[in-house]
Amino acid sequence: MQETVLLVSLGERFDETRMRELGERLTQGLAGASVSAFAALDVEDTYVYVRGEGILPEIQARVAELLPGAHARVLHRTLDLPGASAGHDAPWHYIVETDVLPEAEADLNAWYDQEHLPGLAAVPGTVRALRYECRDESPRYLACYDLRTRETFGSPPWLAVRATDWSSRVRPSFRNTRRTMFRRVL
């Protein structure tokens, strides 16, 4: 079954204490619900992932009540790969959010699923690599990488995966792209 996740952008940085309190309020009484949160390094934002089977409508209502200025998106997981450092702690979270030109969509999806995401998952220091699709708004595609160290991003093996001919062909078709490094706060 394909996982559905609510991704909430808070528009400000939350510290661990504040995030823990919010997480408890969001999931109170919802069996199986979980929250993870990441504060952006270069922008004032915190991304909160809320997971749990059959809880999406309740969580959306709680987000609207508790966080009226927040932006929530429903994400559908399309790929989840364990990384070369699976099982290790992952305090860093890197996300690429993008749309793509319609004529390049099939190529983008094939590239991500066959070359790019598996290649970055195989880099030492990558704990997990995931892809999501947001079907209702832009940016439509999200690639997320849980990293053991911040230095994983930009390491020679990481850069080698980014420097393929296929990457060079696909990347010019990206539109509305955001690349953000986050630090885990919950």
Score class of each variant (00 low, 15 high):
Val74Ala: 13
Gly125Phe: 01
Val100Ile: 15
Phe14Trp: 14
Thr177Tyr: 09
Val48Ala: 10
Thr46Asn: 04
Arg18Asn: 15
Gly154Ser: 01
Arg162Lys: 02
His93Gly: 03
Asn109Phe: 02
Glu58Gly: 13
Ala104Pro: 01
Asp80Thr: 07
Tyr145Asn: 02
Asn176Met: 03
Val50Tyr: 02
Gly125His: 06
Thr27Val: 13
Asp165Gly: 12
Arg131Ile: 00
Asp89Ala: 11
Trp166Thr: 03
Arg175Val: 08
Ala86Phe: 13
Arg135Pro: 11
Gly11Met: 09
Ala106Gly: 09
Pro124Cys: 09
Leu30Ser: 10
Arg131Lys: 08
Ser36Asn: 10
Ser138Ile: 02
Leu79Asn: 01
Ser167Lys: 01
Gln114Phe: 02
Gly83Gln: 06
Leu117Asn: 11
Val43Ala: 13
Leu7Gln: 15
Gly154Arg: 00
Gly154Asp: 00
His88Gln: 14
Leu120Ile: 14
Val48Asp: 14
Thr152Phe: 05
Ala110Pro: 08
Arg62Ile: 06
Gly54Trp: 02
Asp89Met: 03
Tyr132Gly: 07
Ile55Tyr: 10
Glu97Tyr: 04
Arg73Tyr: 07
Gln114Tyr: 01
Val48Thr: 10
Thr78Leu: 08
Tyr112Pro: 01
Ser34Tyr: 00
Asp99Ala: 15
Arg13Cys: 14
Ala31Trp: 02
Val170Ser: 02
Arg20Glu: 13
Val5Arg: 05
Asn176Glu: 13
Leu56Met: 14
Val5Lys: 04
Ala110Phe: 14
Ala110Glu: 08
Arg77Pro: 12
Arg77Lys: 15
Arg51Phe: 00
Asp136Lys: 10
Thr4Asn: 07
Val74Gly: 07
Leu6Ile: 14
Arg178Asn: 06
Glu97Trp: 12
Tyr47Ser: 06
His116Gly: 07
Asp99Gly: 14
Asp99Leu: 07
Glu105Gly: 11
Ala86Cys: 11
Cys134Ser: 14
Arg62Trp: 06
Ser9Phe: 09
Thr180Glu: 04
Ala163Arg: 11
Phe153Val: 07
Leu67Asn: 06
Asp136Asn: 14
Asp99Trp: 10
Pro82Lys: 00
Asp15Met: 11
Leu101Phe: 04
His116Arg: 05
Glu24His: 12
Gly87Arg: 11
Arg184Leu: 05
